[in-house]
Design a protein around this nucleic acid. Structure first.
Length: 310
RNA sequence: CGCGGGGUAGAGCAGCCAGGCAGCUCGCCAGGCUCAUAACCUGGAGGUCGCGGGUUCAAAUCCCGCCCCCGCAA
């Protein structure tokens, strides 16, 4: 079976590599987002998927826009693939491309669809405190994650789950599920099942402001948010006009005695009122500084005691 | 040339603008006090002030170059 792989971030890489390593599958090309300016110097950097594909000698195509680039359809047709596989490509794929391969486009989505359609399903599952989520293999149609389902696998979430740990779980279970589903689907062994629209929920792309901590939100909700938004957009607050990244926290059994966001230093520990209780900050990163444990932070910034964070 | 903060004792910071004894909190070591402590008291060790050059009677501090860490942005 010949496939073309569409993907961009590091999440997509193990999926590509598993397909490449499968003797029954031939990855004839990879399609990814063009190099983007990145880092402090705004240097152009290739996507993680592009690096991986190039190392494995797979031809890489980068289209600025699948919709507006008229050569995209012809180029992709010429590859003669049986299916396109899409894992976090980053752009919607237009209908005239979806219809090119005989088996259509097979997509991997890290949630149990129709729950959490859109770009941030793992973050939402953690932030909402769901007991489990999963990986869904589906056919793409013109909507955003609305196509019929081919297969899914449930992934359990524990109460210390972070975006990193969940991503690892998805990368551990997803590629095998994709490969087996692809083969069974090609053999005609799977009947796609339409999604139940009444149960659909949509996640938005997170931006920096989503990471600002609302100290009225409640201790449990804030703690889950810290785990869910790890890396991007991160969780942060402001003190004296400076940004403080809050990297890890721990709920306490102390009641809320002061307004939300009020800092109290107790026994050398950094406590913040969280609306319905008190949260301890364990790891923190002041703007312009490296991450540090709260004890180290307090050694140099003791005047934060009694301040209000926003 | 995207914008900005930083590098000072093991950790976190102040000192720099306005040059003049190397400081603070914590940790560490020794001793003391206490029924007791993440408590208190006394003493102590620990420093190429990121690196190289320049100015000066004198540089952590001013000037030039370089290295490294980080926030924003993307």
């Amino acid at each position: 079976m010949k496939i073309v792989f569409f993907g961009t971030p590091s999440l997509a890489v193990p999926f590509l590599e598993t397909l490449v390593d499968n003797p029954g599958i031939q990855v004839v090309a990879a399609v990814t987002q063009p190099d983007k300016p990145v880092g402090r110097r705004h240097e152009l950097a290739p996507s993680p998927l592009k690096r991986s594909a190039q190392m494995r000698g797979i031809p890489v195509f980068e289209f600025a826009s699948l919709k507006k680039d008229p050569s995209a359809v012809e180029t992709l047709k010429a590859l003669g693939a049986d299916a396109f596989v899409v894992v976090a490509y980053g752009k919607l794929i237009p209908a005239d491309i979806l219809n090119i391969p005989r088996l259509g486009c097979v997509n991997v989505h890290p949630s149990l669809l129709p729950k959490y359609r859109g770009p941030s399903p793992m973050q939402w599952a953690i932030a909402n405190g769901d007991p489990d989520t999963g990986v869904t293999i589906m056919q793409l149609d013109e909507g955003m994650d609305t196509g019929p389902i081919l297969a899914f696998e449930t992934i359990g979430l524990d109460d210390t789950e972070t975006l990193t740990s969940l991503t690892k779980k998805v990368m551990a279970t997803g590629p095998a599920l994709l490969t087996s589903t692809l083969k069974r689907f090609a053999a005609g062994e799977i009947t796609p099942i339409k999604q139940d629209e009444s149960k659909a929920t949509i996640t938005n792309l997170l931006d920096r402001e989503d990471g600002r901590i609302d100290w009225k939100k409640g201790v449990a909700g804030i703690e889950r948010m810290v785990r869910a938004y790890e890396g991007w957009p991160g969780t942060w607050t402001e003190w004296n006009g400076k940004r403080l990244k809050v990297l890890s926290v721990q709920p306490t059994d102390l009641k809320a005695d002061f307004p939300p966001g009020t800092v109290q230093v107790k026994d050398g520990r950094l406590m913040v009122e969280g609306g319905d209780g008190t949260l301890e900050i364990l790891t923190i990163q002041p703007e312009g500084k490296a991450a540090m444990p709260a004890s180290a932070f307090l050694a140099g910034y003791s005047e934060i005691n009694g301040a209000t964070l926003a």
